[in-house]
C-alpha cells in the first residue's frame, strides 16, 4: 500500500508542478534536418546573449517531421520559437491555434526565412544508373527514395520540384500529373520523415537516388564520407524556404519574448548566416552567400509563391485528402 501511496503522491506532485523550470529556458521546435545546425547555433547564441550582459539561457530542442511538430505546438507543446520546413505548417499555428498573428511572416526579413535550401539528387558513387535530371527518374528500373508528402515537409518540396520540372517541359497539368505519378511508381519505400528516407538510402542501401534537401544531402556526404555517394543537381529545382517564428501566445505567457526575438534575429546576423552556410543552408545575406558560393551548385529555381501561388493554394491542391497526391496513389 505504501508504494501505491508514494506513487500517487508522485503523480499528484507531478500534475501540480509540471516540468521543472530552470532559470530561463527557450524551447525551439524544429523539423528533422536542422539538428546539427541548431546544436551549433544554440551555443553561439548563448555566447552572444551572455556577451550582451544577459544570464545564460537553457535552450531546449525538439525535432521531428514538420507537420507533426506544428501539430504538437497547436496541441500545447510550449514552443517559444518554431523553425519549420515550410510556411504552410506555421500558418496552421494561426489558423487552428491562434497562437500567432496572421501576418507572422512579415515580422522578420525575407518572409521570415533566414536561410533557404533546395532539392537535389543524392546518388551512389559513380552514378551507376546515369541519373542526370528529373526525366531519368521515371525510367523503368530506377528506384527513387523520397518520404511521404503527407507527413514530411521536405517531401512536399520534392514533389513540387518534380511537378515544376514536368510542367515546364510538357506544358500541361495533366501531363505533369502523369509524370509525377510515373515517378512515384518508382518509389519502393515512403518513410514518414526526411531523415527516415536518408537512413533508408544511406544505411539500408535501398534505391538508386534519394531526393533530398540540399543540406541533408551534403550532410549525408560528410557523415558517411565522400566515397559512397555523390550529389547530382537537376536542371531545375525549387527554392525551399523554411521559415521561423516566435510563438506569441507562449512567449507572452512565459515572459520569454525578449530572448526569443533575439534568438531569431541572431539567425540573420553574420555569425548566424555563416553557421547556416557551414551546415549547407543557403544564406540570405548576399555577402555571406557569395563567400560560400563555391559549395552550392548553380541551378534554376522556381519558387512556391510565384509558381504555385503560395502554400495556401499548393497545400490543399496537392497534399490534402483527395488532392493530387491521393489521386496518384489511388490510380495505381
Amino acid at each position: 500500500m505504501s508504494i501505491r501511496r508514494f506513487a500517487l503522491a508522485a503523480l499528484a506532485s507531478a500534475l501540480i508542478t509540471g516540468p521543472v523550470v530552470a532559470a530561463e529556458t527557450l524551447l525551439n521546435v524544429s523539423y528533422d534536418p536542422t539538428r546539427e545546425l541548431y546544436s551549433d547555433f544554440n551555443k553561439a547564441f548563448n555566447t552572444h546573449w551572455q556577451a550582451q550582459g544577459n544570464a545564460a539561457v537553457t535552450i531546449q530542442q525538439s525535432h521531428g517531421g514538420s507537420g507533426k511538430q506544428a501539430r504538437a505546438v497547436i496541441d500545447g507543446l510550449r514552443a517559444d520559437v518554431v523553425t519549420l520546413a515550410l510556411s504552410g505548417d506555421i500558418d496552421e499555428l494561426y489558423k487552428l491555434g491562434k497562437l500567432i498573428p496572421e501576418d507572422w511572416q512579415t515580422r522578420l526579413p525575407d518572409a521570415s526565412t533566414p536561410y533557404t535550401s533546395t532539392i537535389v539528387f543524392l546518388v551512389r558513387k559513380g552514378n551507376p544508373k546515369g541519373l542526370k535530371d528529373w526525366d531519368d527518374l521515371v525510367k523503368p528500373g530506377v528506384e527513387v527514395i523520397t518520404p511521404n508528402p503527407k507527413t514530411s515537409g521536405g517531401a512536399r518540396w520534392n514533389f513540387l520540384a518534380a511537378w515544376a520540372y514536368a510542367q515546364q517541359k510538357f506544358g500541361s497539368e495533366a501531363k505533369a500529373q502523369a509524370f509525377v505519378g510515373q515517378l512515384y511508381k518508382n518509389v519502393p519505400v515512403l518513410d514518414t520523415g526526411a531523415r527516415g528516407s536518408t537512413i533508408t538510402f544511406v544505411n539500408n542501401q535501398i534505391g538508386d537516388v534519394l531526393l533530398a534537401w540540399e543540406n541533408e544531402a551534403f550532410l549525408a556526404l560528410k557523415e558517411e564520407g565522400g566515397d559512397n555517394f555523390e550529389i547530382v543537381a537537376p536542371s531545375l529545382s525549387i527554392l525551399a524556404e523554411p521559415p521561423v517564428a516566435v510563438v506569441d501566445a507562449n512567449v507572452d505567457k512565459k515572459g520569454t519574448r525578449k530572448v526569443a526575438e533575439a534568438y531569431l534575429n541572431y539567425l540573420y546576423s553574420d555569425e548566424g548566416q555563416r553557421l547556416a552556410a557551414k551546415h549547407f543552408y543557403r544564406p540570405r545575406n548576399q555577402a555571406i552567400a557569395s563567400e560560400y558560393a563555391k559549395q552550392f551548385p548553380q541551378l534554376k529555381l522556381v519558387t512556391i509563391d510565384k509558381d504555385f501561388n503560395g502554400w495556401k493554394t499548393a497545400q490543399p491542391k496537392f497534399f490534402n485528402d483527395g488532392g493530387v497526391f491521393d489521386q496518384i496513389y489511388q490510380a495505381q
Binding site: 496552421e92 515512403l190 496513389y329
Partner: peptide, 23 residues
C-alpha cells in the same frame, strides 16, 4: 513496412498521417 499508400500502409500509420495533417 515501406508505408506505401494502398499497399503497405497500416491503420495506425494512417491515423498518425491524418493527425499530422491537422485532420
Amino acid at each position: 513496412a515501406g508505408n506505401m499508400p494502398m499497399k503497405t500502409e497500416i491503420l495506425p500509420l494512417l491515423i498518425m498521417v491524418k493527425l499530422d495533417q491537422y485532420d
